Amino acid sequence: MQYYEIICSSCKQKFKVYEGSQRYRRFKEKTNKIFRCESCDSKIRMDAIKNFLSTHS
């Protein structure tokens, strides 16, 4: 299976993007210049949800 090793724009660690995944397709199409690992992506998403809920309560 093909993959690319990409450096996370948040934590600067290498992670693999495997063929067939949405991230792989985005990387190949270069639609997004910023790539984050799953861990950083989840953390940012959860922080955004918490921030949204705290401001709209």
Score class of each variant (00 low, 15 high):
A48H: 06
V17G: 03
R25F: 02
R25K: 10
M46G: 00
F52S: 02
M46P: 01
T55S: 06
T31I: 06
K43N: 14
A48M: 13
R25M: 02
K30E: 15
Q2L: 05
C11T: 04
K14T: 11
S42C: 06
Q22P: 03
A48K: 14
F52C: 04
Q22F: 11
F35M: 10
K14W: 13
I7E: 09
D41W: 06
S39F: 10
I44L: 15
K43H: 09
K14L: 12
N51A: 12
C11I: 01
Y3T: 11
S57Y: 08
K30G: 03
C40Q: 14
F15W: 08
R45W: 15
V17P: 00
R23A: 10
S21L: 00
I6M: 10
D47E: 06
I6T: 04
S39Y: 04
E29G: 00
K43D: 09
Q13W: 05
E29A: 12
D41Y: 08
F52H: 11
F35D: 00
E5P: 01
E29M: 09
R36N: 07
I49A: 09
I49K: 10
I44R: 13
T55N: 05
S9L: 04
K43M: 15
C11V: 11
K14N: 14
R36M: 05
Q13N: 15
E38C: 09
Q2D: 04
K16Q: 15
S42M: 13
C11E: 06
K43C: 05
D41F: 11
I6N: 06
C8F: 06
F35Y: 11
I44V: 09
